[in-house]
Each structure stands twice: as C-alpha cells, then as structure tokens.
C-alpha cells in the first residue's frame, strides 16, 4: 500500500530525513520507534503534506500513485489520516460540524453521496462509543479546552469516522494515562482489518502492548536503522536506543522536526 524509497526531507533547510525506506502492506500494523529528533514526526508531517517540510530526494508511492504530488486534502480524501501529536484547537467550529464536513468531503471525493444530518448523527453516535466519549464533546469547539487525553481520543474519533486506508498515529500515546491509553488502543484495534494499514509512531514500547504491531522499525538520525518483529520493541525497552544507533551522536541529534 505504501512504499517509501530513499526519502530525504528538510525542515527550514535542515536535513531531517536522510534516506528512509519503508514498505507497508494492506492489513499490516507497523510501529516506528526512535529517540527524540530521529525524524519520526517529520515523517508523519511529510506524509500528511504539511507546508515547511520539503522533500529533497526519494519518492513515496501510495496505492500505485505518487503521493508527493497530492495536496493535503487530496491525501486525506485518498485515504490517508494522520492523528497528530498536537492537535490544534479551533474555537467556534464544533466537533460535529468538522466531522460532518470532513466526512462529506471525503465521500464526495470517492463518488459517494453526502450523508444527511440524520444519517450522520446515527453514524457518529456509534463511533463515539468506540472512544468512550460523551456526546457533549460533539457540540464543543474542536479541541478547545480539551485535556491532552481528550484531544487524542478526539483524533481517534475522527479516524474512526473517516475510515482511512492508511492511518498514521503520531505519538498518540504521549500524555495519556493508562486508562486513556487503553481506550485509544481499543479504538485503533477495532479499526484493524485486512484492507487497512496502520503506522504507529511512538517513543515507548508501552503502547505496543495494546496495539500489537506486525513489524517494528527503529529510526535514528533520519534513517531506518533496524527492522524486526514485535520482539524488537522489547529489546529496545531493555537496552535503550543507544543499542541500535550506528553513531553515538544519533541518539542525541537535535532536530526541530521531532
């Protein structure tokens, strides 16, 4: 589904990604781990198409198409969803309105008819159960005044509503207590199926106890330095990132993109 070849990217002129190679197939869950500054979040933002993240070399093929040619909204409509590490607050736009507008944009792109208000409400009431959110959150402004955990749940709610083909979770576990972590993981697990790929970006092995990956990759200094099955995560937990770093500087390389 996703094929990343020799991807190089800069942020404000600083090289952050320095030759990423990654193959993700449908139905697979991949974990990307790595120390601060290794380029994990930069990778997520490059895939989402964020301004200021400039690809200087390499390519990203998504479902046989050149992803890098797509605008931000085209990527979303084509089935890519990034759950952000720091979701923005949007005062004055209700959660419900955002979800409905987003879903109907995506449906329109896919040649489906837009949902009526009634159909949409029915759908959304099912989906919020997945992330154990109260209905009142639907009527509040997007993420405004939400706790860290509520923001992350809200991201997973959007994920559940938009049903993307490729979901990328950027440090969704950061700032979550163990109960919220389980809720988020349950939400994600319920979306696992043979047609969908999921990339989980995280610092810690803990999340992977709940979202069990098929493959684990370690990112250091802008490259995938080691790949393996889920046992790689246990090894990392035991030995720390210095264990896989090719260069001792990798583990502490400062980066604006992390």
């Amino acid at each position: 589904m996703l094929s990343i070849n020799n991807l190089h990217a800069t942020v404000a002129g600083n090289p952050i990604l320095k030759g990423i190679d990654l193959e993700v197939g449908a139905g697979e869950v991949h974990a990307i781990m790595g120390p601060n500054g290794s380029g994990k979040s930069t990778l997520a933002n490059v895939l989402a198409g964020r301004d200021g993240y400039d690809v200087t070399e390499g390519q990203v093929i998504y479902r046989d198409k050149n992803l890098l040619e797509f605008s931000v909204e085209e990527r979303a409509c084509e089935g890519i969803f990034v759950a952000f590490q720091y979701p923005v607050e949007i005062p004055g736009v209700s959660n419900l309105y955002l979800l409905k507008t987003a879903l109907n944009s995506v449906r329109k792109h896919r040649g489906l008819n837009e949902l009526t208000a009634v159909e949409f409400l029915k759908l959304i009431k099912e989906k919020i159960k997945l992330v154990e959110m109260k209905e009142e959150f639907l009527h509040r402004s997007v993420n405004e005044g939400f706790s860290g955990g509520e923001k992350k749940r809200n991201e997973i709610l959007q994920l559940a509503v938009l049903e993307p083909a490729l979901a990328i979770l950027d440090e969704t576990d950061s700032g979550l207590d163990i109960d919220a972590l389980k809720v988020v993981a349950n939400g994600v697990n319920s979306l696992r199926d043979a047609q969908r790929a999921i990339i989980v970006i995280t610092h810690y092995q803990r999340l992977l106890d709940y979202i069990v990956p098929d493959k684990v990759h370690v990112l250091a200094n802008g490259r995938v330095v080691k790949s393996g099955d889920r046992t790689l995560a246990f090894e990392l937990e035991k030995h720390g990132y210095a264990w896989v770093a090719q260069d001792p500087n990798d583990a502490v390389a400062p980066s604006p993109g992390s």
Partner: peptide, 11 residues
C-alpha cells in the same frame, strides 16, 4: 487551515 485540510476539507 492545515489541520482542516488534513481531514479532507479543501483550503
């Protein structure tokens, strides 16, 4: 704006 676009909403 980016956040909304990333949810499929055009600019």
């Amino acid at each position: 704006i980016f956040y909304l676009q990333s949810r499929g909403i055009d600019e």
